[in-house]
């Protein structure tokens, strides 16, 4: 078995003939925090869905723990998903259940643990995200940052091997952002899991990621450690990392052609 828990091998994927990904290769070694970065609409979230088996690649394969995801039947995919935890962009908490029941949900559904055992585990997970005191609240009573922390507690409820984060920093105030940032790193190390972060927030992501993939135009445009990428001379990486408005090659934005037409 390889040391990579997830491997994306030459994957192409598209909706209705328009290819979103064109032959992407990525590797996610065990125990690391890996970030996938790119502009809006570059198909980052789609990559997470491919790993989770909610979508099938048009070409190539995604392997999780050695198993090819799209060749699994329903039961096989469910088996794989038990090793994964996914934090949705907006938390996706069950609005009809309390915070406690939300975190307890995967334990009640997927294990035969006794109710007292579940109670201990739930409070432990909630304590880890600092919300043990909020266990009786309903999701609607939570702020955005708190909701995401509860969702994080739910995602790690069954101690998954792979934790995936879909835009964990989007729409949070700086304090909540810092809290989530710390949590991702500390949970990863405490659980010995592999974390995959999909984000476009450079500062926070670079702070905690061990390795970063840049996705642009359906391909891996650049990869490396945050340190390498900060020094990168690739024009669009430079622009993205430093958030420059007048980047030389702002990939997604049609303004690029316009500019080169005007000045070229």
């Amino acid at each position: 078995m390889t040391s990579n828990i997830v491997e994306i091998d030459n994957v192409s994927f598209g909706y209705k003939g328009r290819l979103l990904h064109k032959g992407i290769n990525m590797a996610f070694p065990r125990g690391k925090v890996i970030a996938i970065m790119g502009g809006s609409g570059s198909g980052k979230t789609t990559l997470l869905r491919l790993i989770g088996g909610q979508l099938k690649p048009s070409k190539g394969e995604v392997r999780v723990d050695g198993a090819i995801v799209h060749q699994q039947n329903r039961e096989g995919i469910y088996q794989l998903r038990r090793k994964m935890g996914l934090l949705f962009q907006h938390g996706a908490l069950f609005t009809d259940l309390s915070v406690y029941d939300n975190v307890a949900f995967p334990m009640r559904e997927l294990t035969d643990l006794s109710e007292s055992m579940i109670r201990d585990l739930v409070l432990m997970k909630l304590n880890a995200v600092g919300l043990r005191g909020a266990h009786s609240l309903m999701p609607t009573e939570l702020s955005g940052g708190m909701a995401r922390r509860v969702a994080l507690a739910r995602a790690v409820a069954l101690d998954p091997d792979i934790i995936m984060y879909d835009e964990p920093f989007a729409g949070l105030d700086p304090i909540s952002m810092g809290v989530i940032c710390d949590l991702i790193r500390s949970l990863n190390d405490a659980l010995g899991a592999t974390s995959i972060i999909v984000s476009h927030d450079v500062k926070e992501t670079f702070l905690i990621a061990d390795y970063v993939y840049f996705v642009a135009n359906g391909e891996v445009a650049a990869e490396g450690t945050p340190h390498d990428l900060m020094q990168s001379t690739l024009p669009f990486v430079h622009q993205f990392v430093h958030g420059e408005k007048d980047g030389p090659v702002p990939f997604h934005y049609p303004a690029q052609n316009y500019r080169s037409e005007l000045f070229g």
């Binding site: 989770g52 909610q54 998903r81 949705f88 907006h90 996706a92 609005t95 949900f105 995967p106 559904e109």
Partner: peptide
Amino acid sequence: AEIGLMKTTEQLSAMEMMAVN
């Protein structure tokens, strides 16, 4: 409305990702 909202807020997707049908 309940199921539609659950779908809109990705609750159904979240359930599926938790290996719950």
